[in-house]
Computed example of a mutant assay.
Amino acid sequence: MVTSGPGARPRARRRRSWLGLAFVAPALLVFIVFLGVPLAQSLWYSLWHWDGFSTATWAGLSNYTALLHDDGLRTSFGHAGVLVIFYAVLPVTIALGLTAILSRSIRLRGVGVFRTLLFLPQVIASVVVASTWVAIYSPNGLVNQLLRAVGLGSFARAWLGDFTFALPAIGFIGTWLGIGLCLVLFLSGVSSIDTEVFEAARLDGAGIFTEFRAITLPALRGQIVVALTLTVIGAIKTFDLVYVTTRGGPGGSTTVPAYEAYSKAFQQREVGQAAAIAVVLTALILLVSVVINRFNPKDDG
């Protein structure tokens, strides 16, 4: 029996809506349990003075106002801004340059292996990466050995123990990690461009820079937005590299907001302030994500 009539279409729409909700409900439940509840709990903790053991006392917004007067925390956000250059700006720029070169030889044999090797750091545990670079940066590590081998031994130093170079040294690890991710994203975008477009440009005498500016770069706008979103967020919320390599030292020269939150909660026993830092950091990450994604082509009217 076929159901027809003026009420059939609304019923079909309602049925599809319930079916869609049934598919979305598990993901929504996971989001609420593992993200929504902890975030709400952190927000609640941030309104109290609590050391994690004794009775908490109401703080209101005083934990947030205290953050405004915390010189160490302001410095840590400044360090995160420096890391954005190493984690996001440099990897995206270098990966775009490599993409411009590889887009001319996208069918070259061995390009797949090249992509895999560059992406390999992304699948290695961060603790392993950090521990490896601690050895590389050590006084007798690979970096100093290379400097001595080429006659630049006067520049050798304990990189992670130097007040000036410790933060850039950590940043360079982020650059090394980010290049592969960005390059894989950009090469996947280039592979979706019709090869006839490149061939026509080359027949017209377009050089590598003209080809990249006129064809490749506009086509990669979406991938650039994704790469910037991932790398900038990675820079702002970085913790593991700092914890394993320097623990915020020397003298607080490599502290970052996430490490400050850890220090407040587990070393200084100021859980309320640690939660306030976490809430502010979450808000900052959301704001940065929204700003970057405004450049996504899908948002164009």
Rank of each mutant, 00 (worst) to 15 (best):
I85W: 05
L28W: 01
R9Y: 09
G205L: 05
A100S: 15
E270S: 12
N293G: 01
P38H: 06
A22L: 14
G110E: 05
S17P: 00
V242L: 07
T116I: 08
I277K: 08
H69K: 09
T195K: 08
L35A: 14
F266N: 11
V226Y: 00
G78Q: 09
L142Y: 06
A219I: 03
V288D: 03
S126H: 06
F172M: 15
A283H: 00
P26L: 03
G112T: 13
I101S: 14
L203T: 13
Q267I: 15
G252Q: 11
F53Q: 09
A40M: 15
G153F: 10
S263E: 14
S105I: 07
D70V: 09
M1H: 10
L120P: 07
N144Q: 09
S54N: 11
A206V: 07
V128T: 15
L117H: 04
F31R: 03
V30E: 06
A261C: 06
F198C: 01
V37W: 06
G153Q: 10
I179S: 08
G36K: 02
E211Q: 14
T175I: 12
P168E: 04
S4N: 05
S103V: 02
R247G: 11
L68F: 03
I215P: 11
L228E: 01
K237N: 11
A25R: 03
I124W: 02
P121E: 11
V37A: 05
W18Q: 07
A227W: 00
G112H: 12
T238A: 09
L90K: 05
A12K: 08
W159T: 12
L21P: 00
R107L: 14
L152T: 04
T57V: 12
T3K: 10
A135L: 13
F186G: 11
